[in-house]
Amino acid sequence: MQLSVAQGAGAVRVSPILQVRGLTKRFGPLEVLKGIDFAVAPQELVFVIGPSGSGKSTLLRCCNRLEDADSGSILLDGVELMDPKCDLNAMRRRIGMVFQSFNLYPHLTVLGNVTLAMRKVLGKSRREADEIGLAALDRVGLADKAAAYPAALSGGQQQRVAIARALCLNPKVMLFDEPTSALDPELVGSVLAVMRDLREAGMTMVVVSHEMRFAREAADRIVFMEAGCIVEEGPPEQIFSAPANARTRAFVAEIAR
């Protein structure tokens, strides 16, 4: 199925790897997502920005069903995640997720953290899992920390381990939920560098973040959300320099200060 996906300035015809349609979600009386339509093309880096409470994180968390949307459709590589018969555990392996608070397992070593899912879910032997795990740690520059426990690492190192943990499963898409918000400023760079490498390697990424400089230089497309709706989307130059929507303009002006 060929779908039209807005990518860059013009509409390019490619099959999106992730396609969200009419997604709604409410927490009690609060409508957090009001019918979101959203698609990500393979190898695209999409940045989702917006004021806090706009539903960015909820949207991201609905994409691997950590949060259950109330209605709508989520297609990953053609598979409907909202289908009750969908094998969620199998699908979640293909969607890497990186959290604001890292969420490394404190009782396991760094290598134990990155290999747990490979051993439990993919049924790989310890040796094979260790090999892949070490390669992933090498990719984020932390192979020498394999035997350390998370508590002995800096925040930036922990977040890179979390990225390696997701990478090991060879995901089709990676979701980043404010990956640098919990980091001291001097540690942000190392995490962004890894994300930049991933982008270069062709990883498809959806990033919720306030790192606007990174968004401007690395993103293919910016999605601006407010109050549960996508207000505007487009390439970084458009969103940051010439936003069409007044609310986008106000938000961009606010964060530029």
Binding site: N64, L66, N89, A90, R92, R93, I95, G96, M97, F99, S101, N103, L104, Y105, P106, H107, L116, A117, K120, V121, A162, R165, A166, L169
Partner: peptide, 26 residues
């Protein structure tokens, strides 16, 4: 913390696997 549960589930671990390998030891 709830984040432990979410991290494990997001890598495809089942509820039972998450409980025995991640939650219970801690």
């Amino acid at each position: 913390g709830r984040g432990q549960w979410e991290a494990a589930r997001s890598t495809g671990l089942s509820a039972a696997q998450t409980f025995t390998s991640v939650i219970l030891p801690q």
